[in-house]
Write a protein that binds this DNA or RNA. Structure first.
Lengths: 343, 343
DNA sequence: CTGAAAGCGCTTACAG
DNA sequence: CTGAAAGCGCTTACAG
């Protein structure tokens, strides 16, 4: 294999070496059966000898499509990259794209100029569809891409926009079933450690909690808010226990807050699950790292990635672009933290 | 702004609407001053009205370069995506690319077919240079890219290859200075919690430890190995303390192992730093989360990202491609865990 | 089974 | 200051 550094080998060069026309050489690479044995062999030999790799830019130009899908991920500065759910989402997307023979291309814009450059790049025919995993300043991005006819889908419901396509997890159903599980275990005085009030997903979870309590004629007044992280969960739990000593169960809107809450309970001498049962949300790696292991609402993140991909790839085939919406149901993952009988 | 969905506007359409030639329209977009006021205004108006975005595939084809740099990141399945160092690395790369006006394009291949497709994609002229942040099966990738004249640089030293370019952190110097710091604090019986024996970076750190001890005529026989995570650090520390009760300091090859070790010490009633001083490696977020805060060897990860980018972009300009190597020195980040005097 | 020719959209000499 | 023409490398009718 002779590889000439720095020079890109073209189809024409391969054809010349093989002694055929470019059209015939092309047919070999596009698996067109209408090529003689000798021609095929000569072309293949020439291609190997020269180290030929088709130029994708030229191919994209002619085809009008790139066989690749852009995925815009949060800027590295935001903690989202470190969210344990993130790799699962990426894996779901990657699997589905891989199955469709499409190339996944990731972008992590960090600044406004980055976003503008990205807009030009994506709108300029480098991708056939775009998956947006961040809402950061991307409204104009999404609008301009759609104006160019490039299908766009969001992961999660973009705040205040109903004219765009998205796949989301049913946070309401998750909060509902987590709370119903605690009730089914015989718990009655159930507290909720909620996320930030401005967060749509967090308030959906809280709404699920209130509905489940209401359905069972239980009071849902024990609610504290945290910032989804471990420390704020610890603080929230201490506050809740100071408020009421009768708490026999807690639904936390994230596993991290649940872990913090378990710590607070240990400090205050409340046993999990004997005195207080606790269930988290996300089913992150944390859930199996606590003692006892934490029951949790498992988000179908891989499925979410796959469905987003499936939808946006289909959209890129279709003419009309109706906004597509899909809400996936979460599943309970029951572990020891909610299993013992109430005291 | 009228945006015709699905149809890409071309330069020719803009030119026609503006009543000028494609060449003149092109001059407007390439900031060529040799255009009359009227022509310029007409072209700009037409471009806005039609929503023109230049086709990058065509531009790449003509220019023979894409103004973008590929970054191959570890597969989501490997935990590396969740490494707190990872976003810092991405940020460093992104900042440098952004400053050069280049587009960052990320790839996270998950399977062998993914890697093959990626190889075709990268070699096919979609990127001007490639930064490899993973060694996973990428030897053939690297070789084929270089054969095509596409510069490649590794983050970290690829195992067993000296003919490639890389930027790495000086793990040996890090281990040396961490240990010297402990000695300077008056500690004498110093243990090392090392990483896996097969890891190059981990054994460089251990070698730094041994040299520092040797230089001060201290014994360096207290070494236990862990898997770089918290739990294995805890186990290693328990083992070390069982082996010798005189240990007055520990150098752990990762912050996570140091955190586990601190836990083990607390369980066994050894106070940090009064009884035992401890220093970690990475200066990850963990280091400020422990009590007391953990001294650590800070890896210059953003710098590493920037230098890798700078080098590989320069390489893509140069004709000859000599392998480039750069080793960055780490810095000590001193916190309370090593500050009190030895007992 | 084969190949000459036109074209994808942008860019670049070249000639005015 | 302006534009006709050729070309980047691949793909696609079209005619044999």
């Amino acid at each position: 294999m002779e590889a000439v550094s720095g020079s890109a080998i073209t189809l024409a060069q391969v054809a010349r070496l093989a002694g055929v026309s470019r059209t015939t050489a092309f047919r070999v690479f596009s698996d067109n059966p209408a090529v003689s044995q000798e021609a095929r062999a000569a072309v293949e030999r020439a291609a190997v000898e020269l180290g030929y790799v088709p130029n994708r830019a030229a191919k994209s130009l002619v085809a009008g499509r790139s066989e690749s899908v852009g995925v815009v991920i949060p800027e590295p500065r935001s903690g989202l990259l470190l969210d344990p759910l993130f790799p699962r989402l990426l894996r779901g997307i990657g699997e589905e794209l891989s199955a469709s023979g499409l190339q996944m291309v990731l972008f992590a814009p960090q600044s406004t100029p980055d976003i503008q450059r990205l807009e030009q790049y994506l709108a300029g025919g480098h991708v056939d569809a775009v998956i947006l995993l961040t809402f950061h300043d991307s409204d104009t991005l999404s609008a301009r891409l759609q104006a160019r006819g490039i299908p766009v889908i969001y992961g999660g419901r973009p705040p205040g926009r109903s004219d765009v396509s998205f796949v989301d997890v049913d946070n309401h159903a998750g909060g509902l079933s987590a709370t119903e599980h605690l009730i089914a275990q015989g718990r009655r005085r159930i507290a909720h450690i909620a996320g930030p009030v401005h967060s749509r997903s967090a308030s959906d979870r809280a709404q699920g909690f209130r509905e489940a309590m209401w359905n069972s004629a239980l009071r849902s007044d024990l609610v504290a808010h945290g910032e989804m992280d471990r420390d704020s969960g610890e603080v929230a739990m201490s506050r809740l226990l100071a408020e009421s000593h009768e708490i026999d169960a807690v639904f936390a809107a994230s596993d991290a807050m649940a872990a913090g809450a378990m710590w607070a309970m240990q400090v205050l001498g409340r046993r999990v699950p004997d005195d207080v049962a606790i269930i988290g949300f996300d089913d992150s790696p944390l859930a199996t790292a606590t003692r006892p292991p934490l029951s949790s609402v498992r988000q179908p993140i891989e499925d979410m990635g796959r469905e987003m991909t499936r939808l946006v790839v289909n959209m890129s085939g279709a003419r009309k672009q109706e906004p597509q919406h899909m809400i996936l149901g979460p599943e309970l993952q029951i572990r020891q933290s909610t299993l013992a009988a109430a005291g």
